[in-house]
């Protein structure tokens, strides 16, 4: 059941939890700006936020061996704007149809899968997203997303602070 987990980097048992967030999106593209907006708030709260400038394969070395990586992004699905999404990607590939509203050369889902294929991945990956309404260049964030911003930050911080019990083989 945990074949994917077994392909991860060896756990540093007993080492302090190491967590980081990566916040995706363009500050100029409507609700896509929610990632950068959350990044500033997470940094202010003392969290480690990795920057990849829309090219997540830059993160393969940085997230290798992390206990938890929290991915924050705008989401496009059929949900009402402002809906908070939380997807635990531990069990397998991130669904591409989740429609993370990014414009990356290689999406975060693909970059994480590449990391897993190479044994360079975080132990646990959680996507915390908010359903966006519009993504036009030069637009500001929609009211629904602005209203959800603090909830999104709280959700990201909660995931970053979550204590994980180590997964032993044989489960």
């Amino acid at each position: 059941m945990h074949l994917v987990r077994d392909a991860f980097s060896p756990l540093q048992r007993g080492a302090p939890l190491r967590t980081a967030a990566v916040c995706l999106g363009s500050p100029f593209r409507g609700d896509d700006a929610v990632g950068p907006a959350v990044a500033g708030r997470l940094r202010a709260a003392g969290a480690t936020v990795l920057d990849c400038a829309d090219e997540p394969t830059r993160l393969l070395d940085l997230w290798d061996g992390l206990d938890t990586l929290v991915v924050v992004d705008a989401v496009r699905s059929a949900a009402p704007p402002g809906t908070i999404h939380r997807v635990d990607a531990r069990g397998g590939p991130l669904a591409r149809e989740l429609g993370l509203a990014s414009t990356h050369a290689m999406g975060i889902a693909d970059a994480l899968e590449l990391g897993r294929a190479l044994g360079r991945a975080p132990r646990r990956v959680v996507v915390v997203g908010v359903e966006g309404a519009s993504f036009g260049m030069g637009e500001t964030m929609s009211p629904a997303v602005v209203a959800a911003l603090e909830t999104l930050v709280a959700a990201a911080l909660e995931e970053l602070e979550r204590e994980e019990t180590p997964c032993t083989s044989g489960h």
Partner: peptide, 16 residues
């Protein structure tokens, strides 16, 4: 690249 990495890990590592 994910499928490529499974077969030709050496080349993907070189690229990275």
């Amino acid at each position: 690249a994910i499928e490529l990495a499974r077969d030709r890990r050496d080349l993907v590592e070189l690229a990275l």
